[in-house]
C-alpha cells in the first residue's frame, strides 16, 4: 500500500482545478458543480469553496445520485438512494461540471450523464476527477484531473476525505494473488 496523494497534494490539485474551471468557463456564473455521492459530493463542495474564495462570489453546487441509472445494479447488493440536490435555478442552459473522486471504467459517468438528463438540459457537461487511474471501458475522458495514476487492474485506489474518513489521502493497494 502506498500513498499516491497526500493531504497537501489533494488541496493543491483542487485549487488548480478550480482555477482551470474558472478559466475555461469564463468565471463562475455559468457553472453548476454536481458532485457524485459519496466522495464526489464532498469534492464538489470543496471546489465550490475554492472558487468562491478566488472569485469572492458563490458558485452553484449540488449532488447527483446516479444509482437508478447504473448498469450494474443486478450484479451487486442493493444500493440505497442518496438524495439528488439541484441548486436553485437548476441546470438548464448551464455548464455542468460533474465531480467524482476516481475516474476508472467510465460507467459511473455514463450513468451520471443519464441522471442529468432527468433534471434538465445543460449547455455543456464537463468532468472533474481527483484521480484518473485509466482502464476506460467507455469513450469518456475527464476535462480536469487532479492526478493521473497509472495502475494495473489488480490494484485498487482508495480516496479518503476528512469529511467522512477523518483524513485526506489517496492510497494505491495491490491485491495479492
Amino acid at each position: 500500500m502506498s500513498v499516491a496523494l497526500s493531504a497537501v497534494d489533494i488541496s493543491r490539485a483542487l485549487t488548480r482545478i478550480a482555477h482551470e474551471i474558472l478559466e475555461r468557463n469564463g468565471g463562475p456564473d455559468s457553472i453548476v458543480l454536481m458532485g457524485i455521492p459519496t466522495r464526489g459530493a464532498f469534492l464538489a463542495s470543496r471546489l465550490a469553496n475554492s472558487i468562491a474564495s478566488i472569485e469572492g462570489r458563490e458558485v452553484r453546487v449540488g449532488t447527483l445520485d446516479i444509482t437508478l441509472h447504473r448498469d450494474d445494479l443486478r450484479l451487486r447488493p442493493l444500493r440505497a438512494l442518496v438524495p439528488t440536490m439541484t441548486p436553485l435555478g437548476g441546470i438548464e442552459g448551464r455548464n455542468v461540471i460533474l465531480v467524482d473522486d476516481v475516474l476508472f471504467s467510465g460507467r459511473t459517468i455514463r450513468a451520471a450523464l443519464d441522471a442529468l438528463g432527468e433534471i434538465g438540459r445543460p449547455k455543456s457537461v464537463q468532468l472533474a476527477a481527483l484521480v484518473d487511474r485509466g482502464h476506460r471501458e467507455l469513450p469518456i475522458r475527464a476535462d480536469y484531473v487532479g492526478k493521473n495514476l497509472p495502475t494495473s487492474k489488480a490494484q485498487s485506489v482508495k480516496v479518503h476525505l476528512s469529511e467522512i474518513d477523518g483524513v485526506d489521502e489517496v492510497l494505491v493497494e495491490t491485491t495479492e494473488g
Binding site: 445494479l73 443486478r74 450484479l75 451487486r76 447488493p77 442493493l78 444500493r79 440505497a80
Partner: peptide
C-alpha cells in the same frame, strides 16, 4: 434492483 437473492440488505 439488487442482485438476485441479494436484494434485501436494505429492505
Amino acid at each position: 434492483a439488487g442482485a438476485p437473492n441479494e436484494g434485501g440488505d436494505l429492505i
